[in-house]
């Protein structure tokens, strides 16, 4: 898929096309795999918080407050791969 395809989907508010792209991105071209990968990343994040460990909330709030939305969006994608890697179930051919 091209950027043109994605922009057309945004302009048309075609959520299904955008969801499909995100899943294909995370699943290396396999939409079902991508859906599982997204769930996997959230589960890995959830598992880390079960015991309510001390976390740097000030850092989180400061980062969200001070950083631009584009950087946070980029970080969001990067964090997906961080948590997937922590799961030790790496489906990708290469490495991050």
């Amino acid at each position: 898929m091209s950027l043109t395809y994605l922009k057309e989907a945004v302009d048309a508010n075609d959520t299904e096309k955008l969801i499909r792209y995100v899943r294909l991105h995370f699943g290396d071209g396999d939409e079902d795999a991508g859906k599982k990968e997204i769930d996997k990343a959230w589960i890995e994040a959830l598992k880390l918080l079960l015991e309510v460990p001390a976390t740097e909330r000030e850092f989180i709030e400061q980062t969200i407050k001070e950083k631009d939305a584009e950087t946070l969006a980029h970080l969001y994608f990067r964090l997906h791969f961080y948590f997937v890697a922590r799961s030790n179930e790496w489906i990708h051919d290469g490495k991050i």
Partner: peptide, 8 residues
């Protein structure tokens, strides 16, 4: 190598 999309 830093590349996600081919077998490395």
């Amino acid at each position: 190598i830093h590349q996600l999309k081919y077998p490395t």
